[in-house]
Simulated scan of single mutants.
Amino acid sequence: MPGVNGFSPQEIAGLTSRAGIAKSHLRWGELIVKSFLGGVFISLGGLVDLIVLAGSPGLRSSNPGLATLIAGFTFPLGFVLITLTNMELCTSNMFVMPFTALQRKISILDMVKNLVVSYLANLCGCLFVAGFLGWWSDVFDTDTMSSYTVTQAENRVNVQWSVNLLRGVGCNFFVAMAFFLSIGAVEFVSKVYTIWIPVWAFVIAGYQHSIANYFLVPIGMFYGTNFGVGKFIYQSIIPVTIGNLIGGIVMASVPFWYLYGREEQVAPSVQTGQPVAEDEKVKKRGSRSPDSDDETVFSGQGSSSSGLRYDRTDMAQAA
């Protein structure tokens, strides 16, 4: 295992590439189900955050910063569930898929397919939680709580278009950092910590997450907001989504590719801490553990153009 219980940025870049390649090889059904559950998980974090804020009117009025700090601490739950169960979240894919495409290890079509399908399935998962686990289950069962769901939704939509755009940029820059750092951790406690802090930070800052907004805004609309679907799309969905793309690609994928992705790096195994090539030698010598269930993923139908092999179990633990 690595001596510092983690990997260098160059090694993390290699693991990010392997994650992107594995994501591009997901079957349609796998991608849809993983993305739907990704939307469910991100909404569960938003649900807990909203319950804490909505149920603390006194703290919100007397010390709004402390209320945001405490409630925001619960929001990263969704990101942790997504990462540790290896589900698909479009906003984190806005970093890893363009990064891998810049290395020419996946095609533009692979990238677009993943982003579009994961976005739409994330949306469905968020609406499911908003409708079934939020509104119909009567979680916000007091007038104070239900009125706050309306207020927070209006605060997300009734702002300038450019403000939501920039809030989306800031949000996904933090999300990309959380993804990158979590891949560099080799065990669950470190992964949780590296995810929790950046996500907590963007919630405190009031940045906007396009997928989470598909839960936070509709739940307020169910209780009666002063805007309709059209304004939600134009004033929130469009600018925040564009901002998330800019934050994930321009502020994260491109600079990290420039720094660490232009030259081929030998990605380490998350299980052994050794380069993949060394793991392959061990396997060829018959030293592989008999209870190992590694699934090898190849580019295309057979093998990648470079002849490298990508281990799905390692990818699952890393991404």
Rank of each mutant, 00 (worst) to 15 (best):
L37A: 05
I51F: 08
L66K: 08
P57N: 08
L31M: 09
L31P: 04
V48F: 13
S35N: 06
R27N: 13
S24I: 05
D49F: 05
L31I: 07
W28P: 02
G38F: 01
E30Q: 15
G38V: 07
L26A: 06
G46A: 14
L59H: 02
I51P: 00
L31F: 03
K23H: 06
R60D: 10
R60A: 11
I42F: 08
L37C: 12
R60S: 08
L44V: 08
H25Q: 15
S62G: 10
S62R: 13
L50D: 03
F41L: 04
S62K: 12
V52T: 09
K23F: 07
L26N: 09
G29Y: 12
L31W: 03
S24N: 02
S43L: 06
A54W: 04
L59K: 01
S43P: 01
N63G: 09
G46K: 08
V52K: 00
S35A: 15
K23G: 03
P64F: 11
V52G: 02
V48R: 03
D49I: 03
P64V: 11
G58H: 10
L59A: 07
V40A: 03
V33D: 07
W28R: 12
W28D: 10
G39S: 10
W28C: 05
K34Q: 06
G39M: 04
I42P: 02
P57G: 08
L37Q: 01
G29I: 12
S24C: 04
S24R: 05
V40G: 01
K23S: 10
L59F: 06
G65Q: 15
I32L: 15
G46I: 06
G39L: 02
L47P: 04
G46C: 14
K23E: 09
R60L: 15
L26F: 12
H25S: 15
E30K: 14
K34C: 13
L50K: 02
I42Y: 07
A54I: 02
